[in-house]
Design a protein around this nucleic acid. Structure first.
Lengths: 279, 279
DNA sequence: CTGCGCTTATCGTCTGACCATCGACACTAC
DNA sequence: GTAGTGTCGATGGTCAGACGATAAGCGCAG
């Protein structure tokens, strides 16, 4: 059959790209937390077995990508990536197209159960342990709904991460960034939190016993409950979603002022001294 | 806004940042047009009066920023920033995370069948008519694979549109923008096009008789065929998708010549950048 | 505990080199 | 002429090592 091609195209593995990838992994995996200081360039070079020039090119990539930033002229730290530019753009695009609760919900109903299925297939022992821990923590905060909501976002993100499919994770992210904050606005009773947490527990259990289909099904029901709750509140399914993108965890309630973007031109043309600003 | 700050943070003028700024200016000012080739690194170094390392760091910034891209492993050109910024951003984010064929395919397998289902539920007479027309046109171009591919993209986009869910459409778009061009690179026989078109026809038929489940199922099989074809070509499912994808619509531009050297692999994956070194 | 200098680690940059590959051209065979 | 093949300079990827500037970190005096 006529393959036509004898060998496949080969992706060039540039050292600086590989290194950037490795560091990115360390960061996104949580091995390096926000604010953690990076080793010195020479240390990185030695550890990775490359030259400092290579390390620096990798750092430029990560820096430009927003994964790391300078805490001071010679200290690089892991940046707070709660708001990746790409996602900000995407959310804007979504709003521009007047997405409604229904749209977003339907999207998550499409993606999240599948993510759960993949998670059930791919999670290993330690992942499951982490899920249980997350669950426990969430249960401890049933009475602190703000904190509970934060943990809820994290739980779903964790699930997405376990799917080990960056494409799906990325596709899902802006959707959840728009939908979840909207949900938490009326998630205001302990009962609702309990109910949701129970679902989470069941999902994790199904993952643990390696039943992807059931796990996905439970996730689907869990999400359906959201819709039900929304309707019970008398809210319109077809109401547009405004961008309440949650920004920070530790900051005291800064009002999310619609910061106008699009004049970055200048601000990053020159070095920007990092400001611990809420996104 | 009362700023409160007495002095603005001073900016440190790193050479590589200044250079990046300069080049950026040249590009945005139109002095360098889309597709124009950049001077060689050494030439730039000489012109700017800096060392090549500095030039390279500047280039990494511009590259990561999407202002320039590689036309081939050693030719840098000014990138096309004409399409929707959000999608461009997203594609870059995807590439950044080293998505593979498998990731993208799995994502479309998750999203597209559902889109099809929704389309089957929501399409009206005129939509179906449009679908048939698109099909007919595609069938007329079974021998012009370039054109056929364009129509194929359109067909799938049309299907997405019929789902009437902007969130899913947007989430899907960058994925398909990366995956489809990769696919068409080996979609090179009339048989393959015929096969695919047949699937399309069946999908449209199922939509017409309002059988969402079957429509979704057929779409799923259709997509599965892609994966099969990919594998039959001896291509690696876990090969990263290189994205030189989208600019080559109109010009017969240089196809990225794949360079082979299969034993680069070893020095890379193993020796050069040590695994699991605690960064 | 605070503020001050001192030391040194670390960054920014440069030089010059090596190698593999690319691209273009010259050459050979049909 | 056209198509394959060989050659060679140009270019990119990487490295090792160096130097100056200065911020970070620390100890010490107040």
């Amino acid at each position: 059959m006529t393959d036509g091609r004898l060998v496949q195209p080969i992706k060039i593995a540039r050292a600086y790209e590989q290194l950037a990838g490795l560091l990115r992994e360390r960061i996104t995996s949580g091995e390096l937390g926000v604010g953690d200081r990076l080793p010195s360039e020479s240390a990185l070079a030695k550890q990775a077995g490359v030259s400092r020039s290579t390390v620096r090119e990798a750092l430029r990539i990560l820096e430009q990508g927003g994964l790391v930033e300078r805490a001071s002229p010679r200290i690089m730290v892991v940046a707070d990536r709660s708001d990746v530019p790409a996602f900000r753009e995407l959310r804007r695009e979504l709003r521009r197209r007047n997405v409604t609760f229904h749209h977003l919900h339907e999207s998550l109903m499409t993606i999240d159960p599948e993510l759960t299925r993949f998670a059930a297939i791919r999670a290993d022992k330690s992942d499951i342990k982490a899920l249980h821990e997350a669950l426990d923590e969430q249960e401890e905060h049933l009475d602190h709904l703000a904190e509970w909501s934060r943990l809820d976002v994290e739980f779903h993100a964790q699930m997405a991460e376990l799917s080990a499919n960056p494409a799906l994770i990325i596709a899902r992210e802006p959707i959840s960034q728009l939908l979840l904050p909207a949900l938490y606005r009326f998630m205001d009773t302990r009962e609702m939190a309990e109910h949701a947490t129970n679902y989470h527990r069941r999902i994790v259990n199904e993952i643990e016993v390696r039943d992807p289909d059931t796990a996905a099904a439970v996730m689907r029901r869990h999400l359906n409950d959201w819709r039900t709750a929304w309707e019970k509140r008398g809210l319109d399914l077809h109401q547009e979603i405004l961008d309440l993108s949650y920004t920070s965890k530790s900051e005291p309630n800064t009002v999310v002022s619609p910061h106008h973007e699009e004049e970055e031109e200048r601000s990053w043309a020159s070095s920007r001294v990092p400001r611990r600003s809420p996104v």
